[in-house]
């Protein structure tokens, strides 16, 4: 296998976003009482894209915001302090269904932190999870409801997601451990 592999191109990412938008609408029977919250950094533009796709399908605005989980991580003492990102919750989440959006689902620890952060912001009716890439190797009993692409990886591999909004281009690459 090649050490550095492009798993998703920009058009693949677009198709995945549109499919996830359809799936969210199908599962929730429309966009009523839905709030999409992206997890910084790359979950935020992804959430905005999914919301835009949902708006196109439904012809109405979809609530979208961001949820910073930096202060809720369980590995704070294992790394240098991280800069904080904005948390923007556009409507009261209590009684609504929140869809968390992130780029890569790996250990599940970010999502655990996000669920803690959510419980401090209100009491959602339900919480769902949409990710662009599920690369496996969970440390916690967490699974995604909507997945753009499952990528089998070794734990040491590196999945690199770039998005136009944050990095200039859209791509998902897998860098194999020990590759060069």
């Amino acid at each position: 296998m090649t050490p550095d592999q492009e798993f998703l191109t920009d058009s693949d990412i677009n198709r995945a976003v549109v499919r996830i938008a359809h799936e969210i609408l199908e599962r929730n029977r429309g966009a009523d009482d839905l709030v999409l919250l992206g997890i910084p950094t790359r979950g935020v533009p992804l959430a905005a894209r999914i919301a835009a796709a949902m708006t196109t399908i439904e012809g109405r605005e979809v609530n979208v915001g961001s949820l910073d989980v930096g202060m809720y991580r369980d590995d704070l003492r294992l790394r240098p302090t991280v800069a904080l990102h904005p948390t923007v919750i556009p409507v009261d989440i209590t009684g609504r269904t929140v869809v968390l959006v992130d780029d890569v689902l790996f250990s599940g620890r970010t999502i655990r932190a996000a669920m803690d952060a959510l419980s401090d912001a209100g009491r959602p009716k339900a919480v769902q999870l949409a990710v662009l890439v599920d690369r496996g190797h969970r440390d916690l009993p967490i699974r995604a409801d909507y997945v753009g692409k499952n990528i089998p990886t070794a734990r040491e591999d590196d999945v690199q997601v770039t998005l136009t909004e944050t990095d200039g281009t859209d791509s998902v690459r897998l860098v194999r451990a020990g590759g060069n």
């Binding site: 202060m71 704070l76 904080l84 803690d116 419980s119 912001a121």
Partner: peptide, 20 residues
């Protein structure tokens, strides 16, 4: 100052506390 700006938003939430 930037960190303080983000933390200021905590004061507007129902639970004004972070576990950090």
């Amino acid at each position: 100052l930037d960190t303080a700006r983000e933390l200021a938003l905590v004061a507007d939430r129902p639970v004004k506390k972070l576990p950090t």
